[in-house]
Amino acid sequence: MSIQHFRVALIPFFAAFCLPVFAHPETLVKVKDAEDQLGARVGYIELDLNSGKILESFRPEERFPMMSTFKVLLCGAVLSRVDAGQEQLGRRIHYSQNDLVEYSPVTEKHLTDGMTVRELCSAAITMSDNTAANLLLTTIGGPKELTAFLHNMGDHVTRLDRWEPELNEAIPNDERDTTMPAAMATTLRKLLTGELLTLASRQQLIDWMEADKVAGPLLRSALPAGWFIADKSGAGERGSRGIIAALGPDGKPSRIVVIYTTGSQATMDERNRQIAEIGASLIKHW
């Protein structure tokens, strides 16, 4: 067993022997301040990774656009098919120029040779490549099948209805392509620590998230040296922004954090800054 596999296998073990965790309302004060600064709703939840206990939450059962955070769930569904012998990570998928959609920095470079399922998941999570996500959605049967996968996990809230990039439209009061912070946090925890996926697939999923290259201005910008984070960000229309993450000190994750916002007129930089400040408060009061 590799060191990384050992780390993920012992996530519940280490967490069980940690000192009790206590909620700190100071972080919620910052979440509410972010709402004021952005002029928009902000949803927040913080779960203990081992027990699933909610440590703090704000608007945990209000719907927010998922945006690209759905790509972690998508690759979880792909990995479940791999575990069941219905898919192979090494299978190569070929596609054409007509398949390319807006923001496809990886797939646009491989029109000639195609990409493997493993490479597509890596591109979808680490670079948020939209064509990679659409190609992977095709392998599982489309958005409705991802929703069905989530329902089978016990998540009857999260739903995907459309493809990239239309799913980022974020129309107010439109339930399409949305989740709730509580539902997303619980589902992410199941994917990373539950028995739904094999140990190898859980490790692969967290490795992809740990290698995320496009979430630097968010929670990662607030992390002290030595902290662990595996995350996936999302951005959408109407001032929408979000991030889902597993993080913790001492090089291992111990909490799940989900943050979503929508309806702001603020710039992307300002949305990023507010999420980073929430992260800084979380870490300060850990």
Score class of each variant (00 low, 15 high):
residue 242 G to D: 02
residue 111 L to E: 08
residue 105 P to D: 05
residue 78 V to H: 04
residue 243 I to G: 01
residue 197 L to N: 05
residue 256 I to M: 08
residue 44 Y to N: 00
residue 54 I to N: 06
residue 281 S to D: 10
residue 238 R to K: 10
residue 189 R to Q: 15
residue 175 E to Q: 13
residue 31 V to T: 05
residue 107 T to V: 09
residue 256 I to G: 03
residue 167 L to I: 13
residue 192 L to K: 01
residue 145 E to Y: 11
residue 280 A to G: 13
residue 160 L to P: 04
residue 271 R to E: 06
residue 167 L to H: 02
residue 229 I to V: 09
residue 262 T to S: 11
residue 183 A to Q: 15
residue 136 L to G: 02
residue 242 G to V: 00
residue 155 D to A: 00
residue 27 T to G: 04
residue 239 G to A: 05
residue 209 M to T: 00
residue 157 V to T: 12
residue 211 A to V: 08
residue 145 E to C: 11
residue 110 H to P: 04
residue 224 P to R: 06
residue 241 R to L: 04
residue 72 V to Q: 03
residue 167 L to Q: 04
residue 128 S to I: 00
residue 240 S to L: 01
residue 139 T to Y: 07
residue 102 E to P: 15
residue 213 K to Y: 09
residue 97 Q to L: 14
residue 276 A to L: 09
residue 151 H to Y: 13
residue 165 P to I: 08
residue 196 L to P: 13
residue 69 T to E: 02
residue 226 G to M: 07
residue 52 G to C: 03
residue 210 E to A: 10
residue 217 P to F: 08
residue 186 T to Y: 14
residue 77 A to I: 09
residue 103 Y to S: 07
residue 267 T to E: 11
residue 203 Q to R: 10
residue 217 P to V: 10
residue 150 L to P: 01
residue 93 I to K: 03
residue 101 V to S: 08
residue 35 E to M: 04
residue 136 L to H: 00
residue 145 E to R: 12
residue 116 T to P: 06
residue 38 L to W: 08
residue 242 G to K: 03
residue 85 G to E: 11
residue 137 L to E: 01
residue 130 N to R: 01
residue 47 L to N: 03
residue 50 N to F: 11
residue 147 T to V: 10
residue 184 M to H: 00
residue 180 M to Q: 14
residue 76 G to A: 13
residue 120 L to H: 02
residue 56 E to P: 02
residue 272 N to G: 06
residue 183 A to L: 07
residue 55 L to C: 07
residue 42 V to P: 01
residue 113 D to P: 08
residue 114 G to W: 05
residue 258 V to K: 04
residue 131 T to F: 07
residue 24 H to W: 07
residue 277 E to Q: 12
residue 60 P to C: 07
residue 107 T to S: 12
residue 230 A to V: 05
residue 107 T to Y: 02
residue 199 L to Q: 12
residue 97 Q to E: 14
residue 187 T to D: 13
residue 188 L to H: 04
residue 220 R to G: 04
residue 232 K to F: 02
residue 70 F to N: 05
residue 260 Y to F: 13
residue 133 A to W: 00
residue 61 E to I: 10
residue 32 K to D: 05
residue 150 L to V: 11
residue 247 L to H: 02
residue 100 L to N: 04
residue 162 R to S: 09
residue 248 G to Q: 00
residue 151 H to S: 13
residue 244 I to G: 03
residue 125 I to P: 01
residue 78 V to C: 06
residue 166 E to H: 15
residue 271 R to S: 09
residue 50 N to G: 12
residue 113 D to A: 11
residue 154 G to Q: 09
residue 198 T to K: 12
residue 250 D to V: 12
residue 203 Q to V: 10
residue 276 A to N: 08
residue 275 I to S: 02
residue 281 S to T: 13
residue 199 L to R: 13
residue 121 C to H: 00
residue 163 W to G: 08
residue 235 A to D: 02
residue 272 N to I: 04
residue 198 T to S: 14
residue 178 T to Q: 04
residue 125 I to R: 00
residue 231 D to L: 04
residue 66 M to V: 11
residue 270 E to K: 14
residue 94 H to S: 11
residue 154 G to L: 05
residue 122 S to I: 10
residue 83 D to L: 03
residue 140 I to H: 04
residue 72 V to W: 06
residue 82 V to Q: 07
residue 205 L to Y: 01
residue 133 A to R: 00
residue 59 R to E: 02
residue 124 A to G: 07
residue 75 C to K: 01
residue 92 R to T: 14
residue 260 Y to H: 03
residue 265 Q to F: 12
residue 118 R to N: 15
residue 185 A to F: 01
residue 127 M to V: 14
residue 207 D to C: 13
residue 255 R to N: 04
residue 203 Q to P: 01
residue 196 L to R: 14
residue 47 L to D: 03
residue 89 L to Y: 07
residue 92 R to H: 10
residue 229 I to F: 04
residue 175 E to R: 11
residue 234 G to D: 01
residue 238 R to Y: 15
residue 131 T to S: 14
residue 128 S to K: 02
residue 172 P to G: 09
residue 246 A to F: 12
residue 186 T to F: 15
residue 178 T to M: 04
residue 224 P to L: 05
residue 274 Q to V: 13
residue 245 A to S: 11
residue 184 M to I: 11
residue 59 R to A: 05
residue 191 L to C: 07
residue 106 V to M: 13
residue 207 D to G: 14
residue 281 S to L: 10
residue 68 S to T: 01
residue 151 H to N: 15
residue 216 G to R: 08
residue 32 K to L: 12
residue 93 I to V: 13
residue 115 M to D: 04
residue 246 A to H: 05
residue 284 K to G: 12
residue 177 D to R: 01
residue 264 S to N: 08
residue 150 L to A: 10
